Each structure stands twice: as C-alpha cells, then as structure tokens.
Amino acid sequence: MSGNGNAAATAEENSPKMRVIRVGTRKSQLARIQTDSVVATLKASYPGLQFEIIAMSTTGDKILDTALSKIGEKSLFTKELEHALEKNEVDLVVHSLKDLPTVLPPGFTIGAICKRENPHDAVVFHPKFVGKTLETLPEKSVVGTSSLRRAAQLQRKFPHLEFRSIRGNLNTRLRKLDEQQEFSAIILATAGLQRMGWHNRVGQILHPEECMYAVGQGALGVEVRAKDQDILDLVGVLHDPETLLRCIAERAFLRHLEGGCSVPVAVHTAMKDGQLYLTGGVWSLDGSDSIQETMQATIHVPAQHEDGPEDDPQLVGITARNIPRGPQLAAQNLGISLANLLLSKGAKNILDVARQLNDAH
C-alpha cells in the first residue's frame, strides 16, 4: 500500500501541473516587456503551470559599433537563445518575429505568432524639431536608422535628408537623439515604442507609400524545439490566425527572394473581405531603383483552434497545428507568387547589386 502511495506522490510531482516552463529572452527592456506579455497570456491559459524567465545577451546586443547589415552573420539576435533551447536550458524563446530568419536551424520551429501590433515605422524627432515631419525637416538634416530597408525607401522619398546608421537598443538610440546634436530624427518601429509606453515620442507614423515595413514587423514569434510536442501544444494558444497568415505570406515572399538583413526588402499586408493583399518591394541601397507589386488571394481566416493538420510540417519556419492547413498554404503560395513576379521584373539584379555594395563598404 505504502509503495503505491509513493508512486502516486511521484506521479503528482512529475505531472504537468508541477512543471516549471523556462522562457528565454534577450536582456533589453523591450525584450523583457514583450516576454512578460507572452508569459502573462500563458499564465492565464495555464494557471497550474509556473513560468521562469531567463534573460541573456546576444551577438546583436554586444556589437554596437557596426551596422547590422555589415556584421555579416545571420541570427544576430537569436543564436545564443537557440543555443540555450538546444541544450534544454529553456523550453521556449520569445523573439520579435522580424529577427527570426525565414529558414531556422534544424530542430527549431516557430510554435506561435502572437497578435500583431502596429507594424509601421515611426519617426521620433529631436526636441528642437518636435512638430515637424520628415518632409518639413531642414535641408541636409541627419536621420538615424539601423535599417537598409528604411534608408533606401526614405532616401527616395525625401532626397533633402541624409540617413546615417544608429545602433543600440531603444533606450540607447533615444538617448543619442536627445543628448547629442548629430541626429534631427530617428526611425523606429511603432510597436516597440508603444510597448515601452513611449507613445508621446511618436512624431509621425510612416504610411506604406512612404515606407513599407519589415517582414514580420510588429509581431512576436515564440520559438521552440520542433519535436517538443508538449510545448508546441502549450504555445499553440498564442497563435493569432490573421497575423499568422499575413506573416506566412510575408516570410514566403522574403524567403523566395532570398532577402535578408543586408538587402532592402519591404512588405505591406492587409486582410479585407476574405482577401489577403500582399505588397512587396525591393530597392537599391540608395533607393534610386525599385520594383513594387501587389497581389491578392482569397483566404478564409479560420477561428482559433479549428482542428489543424496533425502532421505539422513547417511552413517558412512556422508550425501551427491548430490552424487549418489550406489557408496557410494559400498564404505561402501568395508570397511565392509575388516573389516570382518581382524576380521576373529584375528584382534579383537589384538585390545582387545591393548585396555587393553593402559587402564592399
């Protein structure tokens, strides 16, 4: 009898209710805020589980004197976190989706994509230029951005401005803007500013005609071990179906173009009346040469937790077992079709030249 009692006690200790789920994140304040929001949602869904947040620095956090596009290494903000995932030191990792490459290392998958916040870019102005827009900034004003995508589009749109690289986390960039006289304004992701509670610093939100956004911008991705079915089931509740389908289309477009950090590629997606609209573009580094096109596809946005595919093969690095396969494939095909259209119009040449120029500098 006593033996059975011990077995029952052991089973209770090993039951999922007692389990601590370890969540990996970057150390920056924004990353911690984003991770806290994901953990809060998981806690609400699984009140019996405990969650421990483990923060670590990544290569991208450490190399702050070089433009991201020049470092010449993929997975700048993800490699150390993936290493911890691989060694079973954490069970899942919360990322900004735009930091996750469209091809993940073997053994990993994006197990959830959370509801997207505003994906557009924002302009934050130096205190002396508050009330201005990019259009009304004085001639030769210097605007800071760490992104080739932003610089290429904005140089084309605002030729009277000069664009220079600015690195560091959000706090560091804002301090550089406010305390030094080098920059009249800087460009940042609206979602990051909003998550930090800095709505009052948003001086201008850039519309798609001015600057399309990065693939996955404004959404959070939760990376897990691809074979860890328990954790895949656990994080599945975080999937937002519309965000998922938009981001599958965007990531398929980028992957098929073979774009990345070192080339200016941008997108804009919208879901309306059962249609998914995808606009994508590529630019030369100075913005003088560009190709942009829009395509659409009829896609039914499923309700969360309709029964999805059981075999769960990944699409552009994403596993969404609780979302039907048909809409996911339709979104992926839309991204591939748009990429093929741009490639047929000469996108590869623009991107190759951009890559060579970026590598040469």
Score class of each variant (00 low, 15 high):
Gly131Lys: 08
Val124Lys: 05
Phe108Leu: 13
Thr133Arg: 14
Asn358Tyr: 15
Gly48Ala: 13
Thr78Arg: 03
Ala330Asn: 13
Gly144Arg: 07
Lys70Ala: 12
Gly274Ser: 01
Asn340Gln: 15
Ile231Val: 13
Gly308Ile: 14
Phe129His: 11
Ala226Lys: 15
Leu174Asp: 02
Asp273Asn: 15
Val124Leu: 10
His239Leu: 05
Arg22Met: 05
Thr35Leu: 06
Asn169Gln: 05
Thr298Gln: 08
Ile54Ser: 08
Asn88Gly: 09
Pro138Ile: 08
Ile323Met: 05
Cys114Gly: 07
Ser37His: 12
Ser37Val: 08
Glu293Thr: 03
Glu258Pro: 06
Pro208Ala: 07
Asp311Lys: 02
Val215Cys: 15
Glu89Asn: 13
Thr298Ile: 05
Thr59Lys: 09
Glu52Cys: 13
Thr136Cys: 07
Lys128Thr: 15
Asp289Val: 13
Asp352Thr: 06
Thr319Cys: 11
Cys261Ala: 01
Leu85Asp: 03
Glu86Tyr: 15
Glu86Leu: 11
Glu293Cys: 07
Cys247Gln: 00
Asp230Pro: 11
Val123Cys: 07
Pro264Gln: 10
Gly197Gln: 03
Asp230Lys: 09
Leu92Cys: 13
Gly221Tyr: 04
Met212Thr: 12
Gln332Ile: 00
Asp359Gln: 05
Gly72Gln: 04
Thr298Ser: 14
Ala84Cys: 07
Glu139Leu: 14
Thr294Cys: 00
Lys115Gly: 13
Val353Ser: 09
Glu223Thr: 06
Asp240Lys: 11
Gly346Gln: 01
Leu206Asp: 05
Arg150Thr: 04
Gly274Leu: 09
Leu276His: 01
Gln204Ser: 15
Val142Tyr: 10
Gly317Met: 15
Val93Lys: 00
Asn340Lys: 13
Ser288Lys: 07
Asp121Met: 02
Ile231Met: 13
Ile53Asn: 06
Ala320Thr: 12
Gln204Asn: 02
Ser28His: 00
Lys157Asp: 08
Leu174Thr: 08
Arg150Asn: 00
Lys43Thr: 12
Glu89Gly: 08
Arg195Pro: 04
His207Gly: 11
Asp228Thr: 03
Thr319Glu: 04
Val265Asn: 02
Asn358Arg: 15
Leu134Phe: 06
Leu329Pro: 00
Val267Cys: 14
Ala219Gly: 09
His239Asp: 13
Gly317Asp: 04
Thr66Asp: 04
Thr172Glu: 02
Ser146Met: 07
Leu234Trp: 11
Ser96Val: 02
Leu338Tyr: 00
Lys27Thr: 09
Glu73Asn: 06
Cys261Arg: 02
Val142Asn: 11
Pro105Lys: 11
Leu342Thr: 08
Ile186Asn: 06
Val282Tyr: 03
Gly280Lys: 08
Gln217Thr: 02
Gly203Cys: 13
Val20Ile: 10
Leu285Asn: 15
Ile323Val: 11
Gly287Val: 15
Lys176Tyr: 10
Arg251Ala: 01
Pro302Lys: 05
Ile21Thr: 08
Lys115Ile: 09
Leu244Trp: 02
Glu52His: 05
Ile186Lys: 04
Gly259Glu: 10
Lys348Thr: 07
Leu206Arg: 03
Gln314His: 15
Lys79Trp: 11
Arg246Pro: 06
Ala84Gly: 08
Asp178Phe: 06
Glu242Asp: 12
Ala31Trp: 01
Asp312Thr: 01
Ala31Cys: 00
Tyr277Gln: 01
Thr319Ser: 11
Arg225Cys: 11
Ile53Gly: 05
Glu89Leu: 11
Met271Phe: 13
Val130Trp: 06
Ile110Phe: 06
Arg167Glu: 02
Leu68Thr: 05
Leu81Asn: 02
Thr109Met: 08
Tyr46Ala: 08
Gly111Arg: 03
Asp65His: 12
Ser69Val: 09
Ala249Ser: 13
Leu104Met: 13
Tyr277Trp: 03
Met56His: 13
Leu42Gly: 03
Pro105Thr: 14
Gln332Lys: 15
Lys348Ile: 15
Leu64Tyr: 14
Ser344Ile: 14
Arg195Gln: 04
Ala266Glu: 04
His120Leu: 13
Gly281His: 05
Pro241Leu: 02
Gln181His: 09
Phe253Thr: 04
Phe77Leu: 03
Lys43Ala: 09
Ala219Tyr: 06
Glu209Asn: 02
Glu135Asp: 11
Gln194Met: 15
Cys114Val: 06
Ile63Met: 13
Ile110Leu: 10
Cys211Glu: 01
Gly72Leu: 08
Arg201Lys: 09
Leu85Gly: 01
Leu49Asn: 03
Ala151Met: 03
Ile291Trp: 08
Glu52Ala: 14
Ala152Pro: 07
Lys140Gly: 11
Phe108Tyr: 13
Leu338Arg: 03
Ser141Thr: 09
Gly144Ser: 06
Ile33Pro: 00
Pro324Met: 03
Pro127Thr: 11
Gly260Arg: 02
Pro159Asp: 07
Pro264Trp: 03
Val20Glu: 06
Met271Val: 13
Lys272Leu: 08
Tyr46Leu: 08
Arg149Ser: 02
Ala151Gln: 15
Gly131Tyr: 11
Glu242Asn: 01
Ala122His: 04
Leu49Val: 14
Gly317Ala: 04
Ile205Ser: 06
Ser69Gln: 12
Phe129Leu: 12
Ile71Ser: 10
Val94Asp: 03
Trp198Glu: 12
Gln296Tyr: 10
Ala122Lys: 04
Asp359Ala: 15
Val202Asn: 03
Gln229Tyr: 14
Lys98Asn: 07
Thr269Arg: 00
Val94Met: 00
Thr78His: 05
Gln181Leu: 09
His268Tyr: 14
Arg246Met: 09
Gly281Pro: 02
Leu161Lys: 08
Glu258Tyr: 13
Leu100Asp: 03
Ile21Ser: 00
Asp312Phe: 07
Leu188Glu: 02
Val123Asp: 05
Glu223Asn: 11
Thr58Gly: 01
Ile248Gly: 00
Ile110Asn: 04
Ile205Asp: 13
Ile323Tyr: 10
Asn322Cys: 15
Arg355Gln: 12
Val202Ala: 10
Ile205Met: 10
Gln314Pro: 11
Leu64Met: 09
Trp283Tyr: 13
Ser337Phe: 00
Gln180Arg: 13
Ala297Asp: 11
Gly335Asp: 04
Ala354Pro: 14
Arg251Pro: 05
Ile53Gln: 07
Leu278Pro: 06
Gly144Val: 05
Lys74Phe: 08
Ile291Glu: 13
Lys345Gly: 05
Val90Gly: 04
Ala249His: 00
Glu242His: 15
Gln356Met: 00
His126Pro: 11
Gly72Glu: 12
Ser147Leu: 00
Arg116Pro: 04
Lys132Trp: 12
Lys87Pro: 02
Glu258Lys: 14
Asp307His: 15
Glu242Ala: 14
Asn340Gly: 11
Thr190Glu: 04
Arg246Ile: 06
Asp289Trp: 13
Gly236Trp: 00
Tyr46Asp: 10
His160Gln: 13
Arg355Gly: 15
Asn349Ala: 15
Asn169Tyr: 08
Val38Asn: 04
Leu278Thr: 07
Ser45Leu: 08
Arg149Phe: 07
Val130Gln: 11
Thr298Leu: 08
Lys157Arg: 11
Val39Arg: 08
Thr319His: 15
Ile63Asn: 14
Glu250Phe: 01
Gln181Glu: 14
Gly218Lys: 01
Phe129Trp: 01
Thr102Ile: 12
Val20Ser: 15
Gly144Leu: 06
Gly48Lys: 14
Glu139Asn: 13
Glu80Lys: 09
Val39Ala: 12
Phe125Ala: 05
Tyr277Glu: 03
Cys211Pro: 01
Thr136Val: 10
Lys128Ala: 11
Arg167His: 07
Gln180Cys: 15
Arg225Glu: 07
Ser344Asn: 14
Ala40Lys: 13
Lys87Tyr: 15
Tyr213Ala: 01
Asp99Asn: 04
Ala44Lys: 14
Thr66Val: 14
Ile166Val: 07
Val103Leu: 07
Gly259Cys: 09
Gln292Asp: 10
Val94His: 06
Arg164Tyr: 07
Gly259Arg: 06
Gly24Glu: 00
Gln275Ser: 01
Asp36Trp: 07
Thr78Ala: 07
Val123Gln: 03
Lys227Leu: 14
Ile54Pro: 03
Thr279Ser: 10
Thr145Asn: 08
Val301Ser: 06
Arg195Ser: 04
